[in-house]
Design a binder for these strands. Structure first.
Lengths: 136, 136
DNA sequence: TACAACTGTAATAAATAACATTACAATATG
DNA sequence: CATATTGTAATGTTATTTATTACAGTTGTA
């Protein structure tokens, strides 16, 4: 992960869980996260595509959780925002004429994948409900 | 991790392992990785500080592994290049007047740390020797 | 000793990625 | 019909990453 998207998504989901069905506007959430509302709306696109939230347009519109917080696991949030591989950026363009350079991407990918699986497994043990209930 | 440093470091270490004690120049390694030699030298500073490699200045100089490849575990390489937390960037500055914003960094940090521990544990099972011997 | 091949490191530039902002159409409420 | 909101595109700004240039210091060797 190379940006704050996991934190932003989890922040949004936590706010919505706390809101208990009440609709929250992207402006309100942006104020809590302290980022631009447009970024929140962009992140909501993703969360909607995953079926985590629903949004309502128009006046008094906003977003709400589309499923119970104990049915949303943190690995689902992770994979929803995941872009690059965990341990490395996408751009890796080694020399194909070097015996090591030629093969390293393949071996790095294998390593990254197996490592990421362990991380996903760990995150799958925790739900949004678990995370949210820590807040006093 | 937010850049290619893990891949670069592991690439360097793999080249040195294959070199079998022979000194490799930063220019040569940069050619295999396909990056600028200065970046290799910067990465070598870090690898030297960790005791993984040694370098020799002057003509016919270069770098070599300072310890056996089976004594270098991949979690050591990971922690050597690690900068930010695994799942998020450092900049996260939520609204302290929001009940969620006020506490979220603390809970995110706890989550990140425990998740990263699992990742480190997984990487600790593999050594540079294991990684290197995959190359044909 | 002089030269060549290196490392070490600082300074700067270029490229890329992340994030913010502006703008406005579309939608819903009252 | 006015207002508050989402949805989204386009553009600008900032931060981060990577590359480049430059050169002093070190070492081997002719």
């Amino acid at each position: 992960m190379n940006n704050a998207r996991f934190a932003i998504s989890l922040h949004i989901l936590t706010l919505l869980e706390k809101a208990n069905g009440e609709l929250l506007s992207s402006d309100y959430m942006a104020g809590s996260i302290n980022i631009n509302p447009v970024l929140v709306r962009k992140e909501l696109i993703n969360l909607r595509n995953q079926g985590f939230v629903e949004s309502k347009e128009g006046k008094n519109g906003g977003s709400f959780l589309a499923k119970p917080a104990n049915k949303i696991t943190l690995d689902q949030v992770y994979t929803a925002v995941r872009q690059n591989n965990l341990l490395g950026s996408s751009k890796n363009d080694p020399n194909p004429h070097c015996p090591v350079g030629k093969q390293i991407n393949q071996h790095l990918t294998t390593l990254y994948n197996s490592t990421e699986q362990v991380l996903i497994q760990e995150l799958s043990k925790k739900t949004l409900a678990d995370f949210s209930k820590q807040f006093s």
